[in-house]
């Protein structure tokens, strides 16, 4: 077994306070207790573009938006059985985030794979918000264990299980890793830079193929998101 640095572990209550959020460090492991809500493209479109109302008490209950679709099914008793819980890739939701954070007062965004470093600097950090990434991906069973109940679900009939807005009561819900802080730094970007240092060497001596392709980047140091 090789020697490795031990990562810092933090437990947070939701709604999270400004102080708690300010204290989060890149690469720390986070577990959450309280209520987290799901919202992705379906909810963002419905609220921000079609002007439907969000639940009036949302901000008081939860300031953590999970980019997630649960594996869930009705339990036959008017409630729901939540199986696995895993995030979906967040970069696709970039265009809605500024308006969504302004409208809801959300301070913690949770998802898969982070958002661009630019989004952290210009959208999340200025609004006092940070990004937590799920781990793996994904630890669906561990996260499913952390969900203790469904507090509410909105637009289930109209949008289906995957896109509906779920409010989960959670306890010791995790693990997540802190990807961004209030200065707009990004763990993924920092790690990506380190990986990039090795890339040129990998391609040394390999001749390019005869037929080229149109593409948005031929620079492997760039990301495709």
């Amino acid at each position: 077994m090789v020697e490795r640095r031990k990562l810092k572990k933090v437990s947070l209550n939701i709604p999270a306070s400004a102080e708690d959020i300010a204290a989060l460090e890149l690469g720390s492991i986070v577990f959450l207790s309280g209520v987290v809500y799901t919202a992705r493209e379906g909810v963002y479109k419905r609220v921000l573009e079609d002007r439907e109302q969000i639940p009036a008490n949302l901000t008081a209950v939860s300031n953590a938006n999970f980019h997630c679709s649960p594996a869930a099914a009705p339990d036959g008793k008017g409630g729901y059985r939540i199986g696995g819980v895993t995030a979906t890739a967040s970069f696709r939701f970039s265009k809605w985030m500024a308006d969504w954070l302004d409208l809801t007062g959300t301070k913690i965004v949770i998802g898969k794979g982070g958002m661009s470093a630019d989004d952290y600097k210009t959208v999340l950090a200025p609004r006092g918000a940070v990004y937590l990434t799920t781990v793996g991906y994904g630890t669906g069973a561990l996260l499913g264990r952390g969900v203790k109940g469904v507090r509410d679900v909105l637009w289930l009939d109209e949008m289906g299980i995957a896109q509906a807005m779920w409010q989960f009561e959670v306890e010791n819900f995790g693990p997540f890793l802190v990807d961004s802080d209030l200065e707009g730094n990004s763990l993924f970007a920092e790690q990506g830079e380190l990986v990039n240092q090795n890339i040129e060497k990998l391609y040394e001596g390999l001749k390019p193929p005869a037929l080229h392709r149109y593409g948005e980047t031929g620079d492997r140091k760039k990301e495709v998101i």
Binding site: A71, G83, G84, T88, G138, A141, R145
Partner: peptide, 12 residues
């Protein structure tokens, strides 16, 4: 956890 709980290992 998935095997113990009989729960999908990944929700996707």
């Amino acid at each position: 956890a998935a095997t113990e709980d009989r729960r999908p290992m990944c929700a996707d």
